[in-house]
Each structure stands twice: as structure tokens, then as C-alpha cells.
């Protein structure tokens, strides 16, 4: 299925989206700037927390900042590449989604490539800056494995949040105006993944580890970087498992998407 000509087709679609954005330079610059500011303001919250206390859940400022940075970059990547899938209800209402179905490409592939939010580079860029500064300040005993982990984790985080975006956008196939539900898992997942998980209650912690795998985006990899074990008692190997978690999440999202699509074409109900 993923042959060279298919890749060329998607490539052409994404390039056309990028070209369309580049033609509005002034507004693009403003939006890029607000994305940078968004990260700064979110980060002020972390800063305010550590103005009051020296540690949160046993982690100091630099360590929580590492979590924040990993989460910001991962979420920014997902938001740039697939964040716009929450426009699905709009596409369904205007018939654009039917046009997707009339073309010889996967409907999900077309939905994902229907936009490419370059302005999120602002969020990703400032997330990287926070991450690098935080890593310099945190007490990491660098090994090749940890260096690899730091590079791979934001990508795995992007895949995990991307999977959450895709899985939750299928709400749009079932209810007309319930898209906001998705925010609890996408933006909610991003909010919570910037903090140490041991401050959360058991249910929330388990839900955002095993159902929505937000713990694998930043908290667990940070434990591995710091060489610490989870105060809440998760086994140590999970801290190194962001990549398999991302693959499982992607497969699950694909399955949920197919269920939603079957409902849309009327086979599932």
C-alpha cells in the first residue's frame, strides 16, 4: 500500500498546504509568535510552582522543566502534523469528507494531510529551548542510551499525542457537536504530562498511563534519564518504553479510526 507513488501523492498534498500558508506571511509571523508565547505562559505556571516550593512530588525545578520540555516538543509535533484532525465534524458537514472517500487514497491519510500547521514550529522551537536548558540544569548521568532516549522521546511523544488526536477525533463521526470531549484527552494529556505523575490520584495516574499513554511522553522517560524509580511503584523497564507505547497507541488509534469510519459509512450501526 505504501508504495512510492502513494508517498508522492501525500507529499504533493502536504506541500500544497505548506505553500498555502506561506502566502500569508504577516499573519503567519503573528501566529508563530503567539505559539512561542503560549509555551512561555504555560511555563510561567511551572515557574510559579517553584517560586512557592523547592520540590513537587520530590522533583526539583530543573527535573520538572525537563518533563515540561519533553511534553511541549512532543505535543507540538503532534499538533503540527495531525492536530487539525479535530476539524472532522466540519469536513463531514461541508461534504469535504465525502470528497476524501471518492479519491483512491486512505481517508485518514487525506484528513491528516489536509493541513500542516507550520506555526506550531513556534511551540516546538521554544519547547526545545526549555528542554535543553532544563537538561543542562538537571542532574543527568549521561550514557549513550540516555542520549538516544532524549532524542527519541519527543518523537515517541509526538506519535502518542498524534494517536490521541486521531482516536478522539472519531467522536465527530458519532455526535454532531461533542468534539470538545476530545480536549480532555489531547490538551488535558499535554497539561498533565508536564508534571510528575506521583502527585496525581491512582485513577488519573493509571488512566493516563494505560488508557491514554501520556505518562510515556515525559514523566517516565524523565525517570529513566534521572536514573530514578517511580515513587508510585511502576516497574523500571516501563520508563524506557516510550517507543513501544507509541507503537501500541498508533495501532489502537488506527483501529478506533476504522470503527468510526465504519459507523460513518453506515456499517457499524
Amino acid at each position: 500500500m505504501a508504495d512510492a507513488t502513494t508517498a508522492q501523492a501525500y507529499n504533493a498534498l502536504v506541500r500544497s498546504r505548506v505553500a498555502a500558508q506561506a502566502s500569508y506571511r504577516a499573519s503567519f509571523a503573528i501566529e508563530l509568535g503567539s505559539q512561542v508565547l503560549l509555551v512561555l505562559i504555560e511555563f510561567v505556571e511551572v515557574y510559579v510552582v517553584f517560586h512557592q516550593v523547592d520540590a513537587l512530588g520530590g522533583f526539583d525545578f530543573a527535573e520538572v522543566a525537563v518533563m515540561y520540555g519533553l511534553s511541549a516538543v512532543g505535543f507540538g509535533l503532534a499538533d503540527m502534523v495531525v492536530g487539525h484532525v479535530d476539524r472532522l465534524p466540519f469536513y463531514v458537514r461541508t461534504g469535504t469528507f465525502d470528497a476524501f472517500l471518492l479519491r483512491p487514497l486512505s481517508a485518514l491519510g487525506q484528513l491528516v494531510t489536509s493541513d500542516f500547521s507550520l506555526r506550531r514550529l513556534g511551540r516546538i522551537g521554544s519547547g526545545v529551548v526549555v528542554l535543553v536548558i532544563a537538561l543542562a540544569g538537571a542532574d543527568v548521568d549521561w550514557t549513550p542510551a540516555r542520549a538516544l532516549l532524549v532524542v527519541v522521546t519527543p518523537l515517541a511523544g509526538g506519535v502518542i499525542f498524534g494517536a490521541v488526536f486521531v482516536a478522539t477525533c472519531t467522536i465527530g463521526f458519532h455526535v454532531v457537536e461533542g468534539m470538545e470531549f476530545a480536549n480532555a484527552f489531547t490538551y488535558g494529556g499535554n497539561y498533565l504530562s508536564s508534571f510528575p505523575f506521583n502527585i496525581f490520584g491512582t485513577f488519573i495516574r493509571r488512566f493516563f498511563t494505560f488508557v491514554v499513554p501520556a505518562a510515556f511522553v515525559a514523566y517516565l522517560p524523565t525517570l529513566a534519564l534521572l536514573g530514578r524509580s517511580d515513587p508510585a511503584g511502576l516497574p523500571g523497564w516501563l520508563s524506557w518504553s516510550a517507543v513501544p507505547a507509541a507503537l501500541i497507541a498508533a495501532a489502537a488509534a488506527g483501529w478506533i479510526w476504522r470503527l468510526g469510519l465504519r459507523h460513518y459509512v453506515g456499517a457499524g450501526s
Binding site: T5, T6, Q8, A9, N11, A12, L13, S16, R103, P104, L105
Partner: peptide, 8 residues
């Protein structure tokens, strides 16, 4: 042009 690419 895009449709040409989509239809490969």
C-alpha cells in the same frame, strides 16, 4: 496537479 498525484 494534486488529483493527478492522488490518482498516481
Amino acid at each position: 496537479r494534486l488529483l493527478g498525484a492522488i490518482h498516481r
